[in-house]
Simulated assay, not measured.
Amino acid sequence: MTNSEMVPRTAVPAGIVDPVASARAELKAALAAIEIKGNVPRRVEKASVRAAAKARVFADRNPLGAMVIAVGAAAAVGGAVWAIARAISR
């Protein structure tokens, strides 16, 4: 099978004549689509890997901007923790 003939897991290959084989291929594609959509931990992992790669590229191109963002994020988290701790202590 060449790259031009490869079919994604969620697609049904064309040219299936046998109705049983066609039904099996449709079921297989439907189950693959459900797995891809329903596997939230895997989707979150892929999204976090993409975000980390983008952050690394940004930090390589703009180290000062990355430092400012890191300090701002740390200040925001610290402020949120302080506000929650203060609200609980009252």
Score class of each variant (00 low, 15 high):
81 V>W: 09
2 T>I: 01
15 G>K: 04
11 A>T: 12
34 I>D: 13
41 P>G: 03
9 R>Y: 04
26 E>R: 15
27 L>Q: 14
87 A>M: 05
27 L>I: 08
50 R>I: 07
41 P>T: 08
56 R>C: 02
88 I>K: 13
72 G>W: 07
66 A>Y: 02
20 V>A: 11
4 S>G: 03
23 A>W: 01
21 A>C: 06
18 D>E: 09
15 G>C: 13
83 A>S: 06
53 A>C: 03
56 R>M: 05
44 V>C: 06
71 V>N: 00
86 R>E: 13
16 I>V: 09
45 E>A: 14
78 G>S: 04
50 R>Y: 05
42 R>M: 14
48 S>M: 11
1 M>N: 06
25 A>F: 02
17 V>W: 07
22 S>L: 13
80 A>P: 01
27 L>E: 15
70 A>S: 09
80 A>I: 10
68 V>K: 14
64 L>S: 06
83 A>P: 02
52 A>R: 11
14 A>C: 01
53 A>Y: 10
44 V>P: 05
45 E>H: 09
73 A>D: 08
18 D>H: 08
56 R>A: 13
41 P>C: 03
7 V>W: 05
79 G>I: 01
13 P>E: 10
69 I>G: 00
62 N>W: 04
74 A>D: 15
61 R>S: 14
32 A>C: 07
4 S>P: 00
69 I>P: 00
64 L>V: 14
70 A>E: 09
34 I>P: 00
58 F>K: 08
84 I>F: 07
48 S>H: 12
59 A>F: 00
24 R>N: 15
64 L>R: 10
66 A>H: 09
25 A>D: 03
38 G>S: 11
37 K>H: 11
11 A>C: 07
18 D>P: 12
50 R>F: 02
42 R>D: 13
43 R>N: 09
42 R>K: 10
49 V>I: 11
37 K>G: 06
11 A>F: 08
31 L>P: 10
75 A>Y: 06
65 G>K: 05
67 M>F: 07
66 A>C: 12
63 P>R: 02
50 R>S: 12
56 R>K: 10
40 V>F: 04
16 I>P: 07
42 R>P: 00
52 A>Q: 07
32 A>H: 06
36 I>H: 08
58 F>Y: 15
88 I>R: 14
40 V>C: 00
69 I>Y: 00
32 A>E: 10
20 V>P: 08
81 V>Y: 05
85 A>H: 01
62 N>E: 07
83 A>G: 06
17 V>C: 01
72 G>L: 15
73 A>S: 13
24 R>Q: 10
32 A>N: 13
2 T>A: 03
5 E>N: 15
86 R>S: 08
68 V>A: 11
61 R>L: 06
11 A>E: 15
37 K>M: 11
86 R>G: 08
41 P>S: 02
